[in-house]
């Protein structure tokens, strides 16, 4: 049984300006000890997807459909009380900005203890012991003293370690990391990612790594979902995706990946802006920015179809197989030659 299984998830918000279809048709399954990478630009719906999974979208403003199974238990439609039991215990979440994600007027010890006390029937003393323990585990030096410090006394990387500690303190089976390294400098990013890798091995957690950084995905993930305009546009095993991406947006993402051995050359970028969710383009959401756009792209949304390259490899694109193969191979060759030239 997968640790987390999502089927056909859709989230729609009611706003003053009308309905916003933030996410639709998201399905995946994630096994114990595995990592799912979720890639996309801001506004692609990746954060909303996992706030929905956590049950953190406001039910007064959002309409949710589909199914979220956590260890086989349906989360959508579960009572608030049950959701509260699960959140922070079975499933933990880390957020993007460690500078704002901690309560500034409480010590980090208090905030860690709170997480313990909500889910475990233990004394405050025991909760404090656990807090110091987990701080040690996330490699915060002098954790028995720093436990009484306030968030503003920590650096950004240290705060993200605290956030991780807080998510892990109740030993969750699933950890959702929503862009955990985006706000950090490169050195710290690497440290945090290494830490997460180590902790995953030790705790045998399933991790969802939401990111816009394909590099992070390449390093950590087993499977990848590429999201665009609130839809899954490509979904595959990480090797398959990097070896043979099937649609123009993913090509663009790969092209914009910085390469260590390509100093001086300009990064490719995808022209245009991500689509407005309030007023999405007809047809394929990527069509306004797509270099290979055809008439059909402007009218019909391509089905999520299976690729012949790799098991369980899905994508959305109207381009026929031959064109895609030819185009990718040309693009790939260019990328490789650029590498070689350097």
């Amino acid at each position: 049984m997968p640790a987390l299984e999502v089927k056909d998830l859709a989230t729609t918000f009611h706003t003053d300006d009308g309905l916003v279809k933030a996410v639709s048709g998201v399905s995946f399954s994630l096994d114990q000890g595995k990592t799912l990478g979720v890639v996309g630009e801001s506004g692609s719906g990746k954060s909303v997807t996992f706030l929905t999974v956590m049950g953190l979208v406001d039910p007064r403003h959002a309409q949710v459909s589909g199914s979220v199974l956590l260890n086989g238990e349906e989360m959508l439609g579960a009572s608030q009380a049950r959701l509260r039991q699960i959140r922070g215990a079975t499933i933990g979440m880390i957020f993007q900005d460690p500078m704002t994600s901690l309560n500034p007027v409480k010590t980090i010890g208090w905030q860690l203890e709170e997480a313990v006390l909500i889910h475990q029937d233990v004394t405050r003393k025991e909760a404090r012991r656990q807090a110091i323990e987990i701080l040690k585990e996330v490699e915060i030096p002098r954790s028995d003293q720093r436990v009484d410090d306030y968030p503003h006394q920590f650096s950004g990387g240290m705060r993200q370690r605290v956030m991780i500690a807080m998510a892990l303190i109740n030993n969750p089976e699933v950890l959702i990391a929503d862009e955990p390294t985006t706000a950090l400098d490169v050195t710290t990013q690497a440290q945090i990612l290494r830490l997460m890798g180590r902790l995953q091995q030790e705790h045998q957690m399933a991790i969802v790594m939401v990111t816009h950084d394909l590099g992070v995905v390449a390093e950590l993930a087993n499977d990848v979902i590429v999201m665009y305009g609130g839809k899954v546009v490509e979904q595959a095993n990480v090797d398959d995706l990097f070896a043979r991406p099937e649609m123009p947006y993913t090509w663009g993402l790969l092209g914009s990946l910085p390469r260590l051995n390509a100093e001086g050359s300009r990064l490719e970028q995808i022209p245009g802006q991500p689509p407005s969710l309030l007023n999405p383009p007809r047809g394929c959401p990527f069509n306004p920015r797509c270099a290979f756009v055809m008439d059909v792209c402007r009218t019909d949304l391509p089905e999520l179809r299976r690729s012949d390259n790799g098991e369980e490899h899905y994508f959305r694109c109207h381009l026929d197989d031959e064109t895609r193969t030819r185009t990718w191979e040309a693009k790939h060759a260019a990328l490789v030659s650029k590498d070689a030239a350097a």
């Binding site: 956590m54 953190l56 959701l83 509260r84 039991q85 699960i86 959140r87 922070g88 215990a89 933990g92 979440m93 957020f95 900005d97 704002t100 994600s101 901690l102 309560n103 500034p104 709170e114 997480a115 909500i118 889910h119 956030m163 807080m166 998510a167």
Partner: peptide, 15 residues
């Protein structure tokens, strides 16, 4: 964000 964090911890609305 820290209010969202608290909710993600499983804190009740009252808390």
């Amino acid at each position: 964000d820290y209010v969202r964090t608290a909710r993600a911890k499983g804190a009740s609305e009252r808390r």
